[in-house]
């Protein structure tokens, strides 16, 4: 599928660019429409387990709704308190609702864009691309890769430690002390393993210099530019629409 084969650096930079551009705007409609477009693009051009996508999107939506409510509840005094909207049984200033909606949809737009990236990108290819296209030092890239590999190992370790502590009869102490008792064996084990991994990498001739060849060469092809062009076009179209229907506004450290 197109999104999965897209050059990861191009994909990441496009998304980052769009996020910055979206952050400059402040109205409820543009991010809402953009969210829908992003989801559509993800589903049309991405190959992934559809069920998991929803599984991830739901908490994001809850988060956005939570944000909506807190922003309204703790809002600054509005400029036009007279204009209100009835939210079921609660009268709130119109202005506050608009601000809250803008913030919440922006969060959703960011979230769907990051999901687009996460669901269609292979972590290893991303790091390889960062090295090959964006000149990330290999020492850092492979160091991160080695660290990332620890993730599943750490989960098992964590469970082991929890069970082991239960046998020792933990639980009489304050929460902070318990955290510390957990953290020390977990981190100590991880650090020792990290050191061993580094030694193993060096013994395979890894020096961290840029002089190396690659088993997988990640390139930027012509069709990769379709993604920034297409997403940029959607974004501009939405801005034109917002200008046309007059709800466009810049973000001014709201409000």
């Amino acid at each position: 599928m197109y999104l999965n084969n897209l050059n990861p650096s191009v994909k990441a930079l496009t998304i980052l660019g769009l996020v910055v551009a979206l952050a400059l705007l402040f109205d409820p409609v543009t991010p809402a429409l953009f969210t829908l477009c992003t989801i559509a693009v993800t589903f049309l051009f991405g190959d992934f387990r559809r069920k998991y996508y929803l599984f991830y999107l739901i908490p994001f939506t809850i988060f956005a709704i939570g944000m909506l409510w807190t922003t309204i509840a703790f809002a600054d005094a509005p400029k036009n308190p007279a204009e209100t909207i009835g939210l079921i049984w609660w009268e709130v200033p119109r202005e506050d609702v608009l601000v809250a909606l803008s913030l919440s949809f922006r969060v959703l737009a960011f979230a769907t864009m990051s999901l687009l990236f996460i669901f269609t990108t292979n972590m290893v290819e991303f790091l390889l691309s960062l090295m090959q296209q964006l000149r990330l030092p290999p020492k850092l890239a492979y160091g991160i890769m080695a660290g990332y590999r620890f993730l599943p190992m750490l989960t098992t370790e964590f469970r082991q430690i929890r069970a082991a502590h239960r046998v020792r009869g933990m639980g009489r102490e304050s929460r902070w002390k318990r955290y510390r008792r957990f953290a020390v064996p977990l981190l100590a084990g991880a650090i020792r393993k990290a050191e061993r991994t580094a030694v193993a990498m060096e013994s395979k001739g890894f020096t961290g210099t840029r002089e190396r060849t690659f088993y997988r060469n990640i390139r930027v092809r012509k069709k990769d530019w379709l993604f920034p062009a297409g997403m940029g076009a959607i974004f501009l179209l939405l801005i034109l629409l917002s200008l046309r229907f007059d709800y466009f506004s810049w973000y001014q450290g709201q409000l």
């Binding site: 991160i144 080695a146 993730l151 977990l186 991880a190 650090i191 050191e195 580094a198």
Partner: peptide, 22 residues
């Protein structure tokens, strides 16, 4: 990055992974 040892980078990255979860 030159004066960093590899083990320092790996340890830093492992710490980051642990705390990302935290």
């Amino acid at each position: 990055m030159k004066n960093w040892k590899l083990k320092e980078i790996v340890v830093m990255s492992v710490l980051s992974v642990v705390f990302a979860v935290v």
